[in-house]
Simulated assay, not measured.
Amino acid sequence: MSALPPPVIEMAGARKTYRSGQIEFEALSGIDLSVTEGEYVAIVGPSGSGKSTLMNILGCLDVLTSGSYRLGGEDVERLSEVALARVRNRQIGFVFQQFHLLPSLSALRNVELPMVYGRVEKTERRERAAAALERVGLSDRLNNRPGELSGGQQQRVAVARALAGDPTMILADEPTGNLDSASTDDVLGLFDELHAAGRTIVLITHEHDVARRARRMVTVRDGLIVSDGATQEAAA
């Protein structure tokens, strides 16, 4: 009997409360979530459901008020700000709705940038950036700047940037929000390929059509998980 893949995400009793003067708002109300290595999970919910707060916690951009969160076996709540920054740089590959590409830099240089901050040696980071761009089908666009690329191609550069550091997971926040339908299919097809290759992907979206492309859908409402199960894509 084969062993189950290790969990990448382990979250138990996760609560997040925001305070403004005498007013308190509980954005997360006690969430338990586990994602194993190689899973492709979509977290879906309407505006105000808590999914953006959950994304910030998963991405180590915010911390819990109570409960626990372990990423790759490491207790995130115990990490210093310096250690959290290191986790964000090395363990999480971010893909955002806004591509966050620097317009003055080529695709290759944009992909290299996080590795510059991670102090990866120049030759290695250039090789890794070129390999990541080849992986997303842009080996012929290394020297193009973002303004010379379509929206779908810019998002592929952003995915390559996320991949180049060989992260524990890819965390994609509304990655198709600024794309037309053809580019959306293009990017979601790329996520399918990455999942098939064994990547762990967590996709945050408010669009159920996008969420159904994942293999598991977690629905959040009022700070709670209200459903969690395989998608039709997984059953196909």
Rank of each mutant, 00 (worst) to 15 (best):
Val210Ala: 01
Leu188Pro: 00
Val202Ala: 00
Ser183Glu: 01
His195Glu: 05
Asp192Cys: 12
Thr200Leu: 04
Thr200Met: 05
Ala197Asn: 13
Glu207Ile: 06
Phe191Thr: 01
Glu207Trp: 10
Ile201Glu: 14
Thr200Tyr: 06
Val202Pro: 00
Ala197Thr: 12
Ile204Pro: 00
Ser181Phe: 06
Asp192Ile: 12
Leu190Thr: 02
Ala197Phe: 00
Asp180Ile: 07
Gly198Asn: 06
Ala196Glu: 15
His208Glu: 10
Gly198Ser: 03
Ile201Tyr: 13
Ile201Lys: 10
Ser181Gln: 08
Ala197His: 08
Asp192Gly: 15
Asp192Ala: 15
Ala182Gly: 05
Glu207Arg: 11
Gly198Thr: 10
Phe191Ala: 02
Asp192Tyr: 06
Thr200Ser: 06
Val202Tyr: 02
Ser181Pro: 09
Asp209Ile: 03
Ala211Val: 13
Thr200Asp: 11
Val202Gly: 03
Gly198His: 12
Thr200Pro: 00
Ala197Trp: 03
Gly189Glu: 01
Gly189Cys: 01
Val210Asp: 02
Ser183Lys: 08
His206Glu: 03
Ser183His: 09
Val187Leu: 10
Asp186Ser: 11
His206Trp: 09
Val210Arg: 12
Leu203Glu: 06
Leu194His: 03
Thr205Asp: 05
Leu190Gln: 04
Ser183Gly: 12
Ile204Gln: 02
Ala197Lys: 14
His208Pro: 09
Leu188Asn: 11
Leu203Asn: 02
His195Thr: 13
Leu194Met: 06
Glu193Phe: 11
Ser183Ile: 06
Asp186Lys: 04
Thr205Leu: 01
Phe191Asn: 01
Ile201Ala: 09
Arg199Gln: 14
Ile201Arg: 08
Asp209Trp: 10
Asp192Leu: 13
Leu194Ile: 07
Thr200Val: 07
Leu190Pro: 06
Thr205Cys: 02
Glu207Leu: 05
Leu188Ser: 05
Asp180Lys: 07
Leu190Ala: 07
Gly189Thr: 01
Asp192His: 15
Val187Asn: 09
Arg212Tyr: 07
Asp209Phe: 12
Phe191Trp: 04
His206Cys: 09
Asp186Gln: 09
Ala197Met: 07
Glu193His: 12
Glu193Lys: 12
His208Arg: 14
Leu203Arg: 00
Thr184Leu: 05
